[in-house]
Write a protein that binds this DNA or RNA. Structure first.
Length: 661
RNA sequence: GCCUCUUUAGCUCAGUGGUAGAGCAGCUCACUCGUAAUGAGCAGGUCGAGGGUUCAAGUCCCUUGAGAGGCUCCA
């Protein structure tokens, strides 16, 4: 603002402490931007926000007291947030230009970019085409480099200002704010209620992309009015936008719905019903490999496989409490025609497994009892929620329930974590996060069971995770209604987090099902239950695996590991012989039948996901060899079928070593 | 469920009220080739479904199925 301030030491001086604990003196009233300028021109160009004693401030807000500061650039979350927050205001300014009278709700930042919830004037319909002219207007306003000016105003003034604008949304927000702490920001002709912080001026924004329009309830409550939400993202450099758009394109190519279709793994049919996946032959190969793998691991860990029906009497779910909790929002009761019995499609396997446990008296010596089932369950999900294989209405959990004594709980829990580790390691899913999901203390009505049991369960999870050296985040309110969870989340191609593995401690269902065992003291005791599904569900796991590998699965999972390609029709017979041999040695191979008529017709998107290509022609057919090409590595030379099979089996074993070791 | 958008051949998509199109895949014939595409030809669609407006509807309107991106939800 007035750089001479720093020179004139008539002004009172203040001490600014930097993150490295160095201290410099500046004249009172110095701004973050001026501090950055005092350090270097380059920093002054890149700096976007400043934190003052831990609070993020505008760069143009004057500091008047001694302070600890930190400067933020695009590389810091705080810098990006400030940038995008100002961008949201810039978008609002552009929208107000074209649609005067628009009411503005909230306009926060998200992981990538920002959105603004707006209420357009009566009769205005907003479509994707309108986004382009708003983008253009935003860039135009950005080029004006309008200062973004912060002002503190009284609650009464704020209320008056937005009453004048007939903006009930802002009035509602203001009514909930504390007087004396209300700020507004102004840029050009636009003024908005806002806590800040913001960029010094609009000129920082160099590239704009408004990504989508969506509906969103005012304040996230479905009883409230539906507002129009506009998502956007902005960047300080045009190239960053181009790179971002390229990334989105790349992510689209990895989308499991696209690859699943191309590779013929699964499909959906409107006639079968939405959210009900149909596993195609190749997808089934993939899925069964996963199931067999987990079954072997579980056998090692002392699990027993069980099978239970797909429906259960309503009483079962009333006993478990699921009916009271979810009955109204699930597939509705099925009635028998003559007897009027009431059944439900099974939405989870736990109650069935509880009844297996209860089928005979149990001794403390029998515990833990570990019952596993690839159990297909059906849950009503709102139609708008369905998404490929990640959110469906019928899916198969790799479920198991462990019934154990209190002294076994922690050890059992840790062994389940081991299984999750084995799976993630074998699949190459290294970038997972572990989340401990606890009760929401403010909403006890959402949960069943006593506080004492909840505390015991929560403590068991926290301790077990800790002893396993797991880095966890803790989220309140994410627990299941019967107990706390340890969830493993993995990101998909677009960076969205999906919950895969889950482990839950439950003191409540054993109580509701009156499960017992006879202890060493000859008295009846209550077992503790662990619910767990390391994949989560076969559907979701396969989806995430597809996006992670872009369809290039580990060798042992690949639906077609080898394609045998005859050079010409003459060698079809030999190709058939090779293919039969490999299939008999547990290697999945197929002949490229499109090559029957010659003319190199293998399509790339299919071929590039098949690890091995065996080329057979005159030379090979005569000598009984195969020419081996490895995807991405080229020619591997010629070998006999036996040598190739042995080589491939060794590779597969190697990939499974996480489990075999 | 709600908001916005989409729905045309097996797939990807053109087609802005006036005779349903392309590329790839498929089939037939020719070419016998060492791996990102041989050549020629053929076939393939009640334009998601139902109703309406109109002389005339893939195109405009209503209802509805399915899909996409969000919101709310997620045992």
């Amino acid at each position: 603002m007035q750089p001479e301030n720093k020179i004139h030491n008539i002004r009172q001086m203040i001490k600014i402490t930097f993150p490295d604990n160095s201290v410099r003196e500046f004249g009172s009233g110095v701004t973050g931007l001026e501090i950055a300028e005092a350090i270097s021109n380059r920093l002054a160009k890149e700096v976007l926000a400043i934190s003052v004693n831990g609070e993020v401030w505008d760069l143009s807000r004057p500091l008047t007291t001694d302070a600890n500061i930190k400067l933020f650039t695009w590389d810091d979350r705080e810098g990006k947030e400030t940038f995008w927050h100002s961008s949201a205001h810039l978008m609002a300014e552009a929208i107000e230009f074209y649609y005067p009278g628009t009411k503005f709700g909230i306009g926060p930042t998200v992981d990538t970019g920002f959105y603004y919830d707006i209420d357009l004037p009566e009769g205005i319909q907003f479509t994707e085409k309108d986004l382009e002219r708003i983008e253009a207007k935003m860039l135009e306003l950005a080029r004006e480099k309008n200062d973004i000016v912060r002002r503190e105003i009284s609650k009464a003034d704020a209320m008056a200002m937005f009453t004048k604008k007939h903006d009930e949304l802002k009035q509602e927000l203001i009514s909930e704010l504390e007087d004396g702490k209300i700020t507004i920001y102004n840029q050009g002709k636009f003024t908005d209620l806002c806590r800040g912080p913001h960029l010094p001026n609009t000129g920082y924004v160099k590239a704009v992309k408004l990504t989508s329009i969506a509906g969103a309830y005012w304040r996230g409550n479905e009883k409230n009015k539906m507002l129009t939400r506009i998502y956007g993202v902005t960047f300080p450099k045009q190239k960053m936008l181009t790179d971002y758009l390229t990334l989105l394109e790349e992510a689209k190519k990895r989308d499991h719905r696209k690859i699943g279709k191309e590779m013929e793994l699964f499909t959906f049919s409107a006639k079968v019903g939405q959210g009900l996946p149909l596993w195609l032959p190749k997808g089934t190969v993939l899925r069964m490999q996963l199931e067999d793998f987990l079954k072997k691991v579980q056998k090692k860990f002392g699990y027993e496989q069980v099978i239970t029906p797909h429906i259960g009497d309503v009483t079962l779910y009333k006993t478990s409490g699921h009916f009271q909790k979810y009955g109204a929002d699930s597939f509705q009761v099925i009635k028998t025609p003559a007897e009027g019995e009431e059944y439900m499609l099974k939405p989870m396997n736990c109650p069935h497994h509880c009844e297996i446990y209860a089928s005979k008296p149990r001794s403390y010596k029998d515990l833990p009892v570990r019952l596993a089932e690839f159990g297909t369950v059906y849950r009503y999900e709102q139609s708008g929620e369905l998404h490929g294989l990640t959110r469906v209405r019928g899916f198969t959990q790799d479920d198991a329930h462990l019934f154990c004594r209190p002294d076994q709980l922690k050890d059992e829990f840790k062994k389940v974590i081991d299984i999750v580790f084995i799976i993630f390691k074998t699949m190459g899913l290294e970038d997972y996060t572990a989340q401990i999901s606890l009760r929401d203390p403010a909403k006890p009505e959402k949960y069943i069971g006593t506080p004492e049991n909840w505390e015991k369960a929560e403590r068991a999870i926290i301790e077990a995770a800790d002893e396993k050296g797991l880095k966890t985040t803790t989220v309140l309110g994410e627990a299941a209604f019967y107990g706390p969870k340890l969830d493993f989340m993995v990101k998909d191609a677009l960076g969205r987090n999906w919950q895969l593995g889950t482990i839950q401690v439950d003191y409540n269902l054993p109580e509701r099902f009156d499960l017992e065992y006879i202890g060493a003291d000859d008295k009846r005791h209550r077992p503790i239950m662990i619910h767990r599904a390391p994949f989560g569900s076969m559907e979701r796991f396969v989806a995430v695996l597809i996006e992670h590998t872009a369809g290039k699965f580990p060798l042992w999972l690949t639906p077609d590991q080898v394609v045998v390609l005859p050079i010409s029709e003459k060698y079809n017979e030999y190709a058939q012989k090779v293919s039969d041999f490999l299939n008999n040695s547990d290697i999945r191979s197929l002949i490229d039948d499109r090559n029957e008529k010659i003319g190199r017709k293998i399509r790339d998107n299919e071929l590039k996901r098949i690890p091995y290509l065996l080329i057979v022609g005159e030379k090979e057919a005569e000598s009984g060899l195969v020419s081996v090409r490895k995807q991405g590595e080229g020619d591997q030379g010629s070998m006999t079928m036996e040598e190739f099979a042995a080589y491939l089996n060794k590779e597969i074993k190697g990939q499974l070593s996480a489990f075999y070791n």
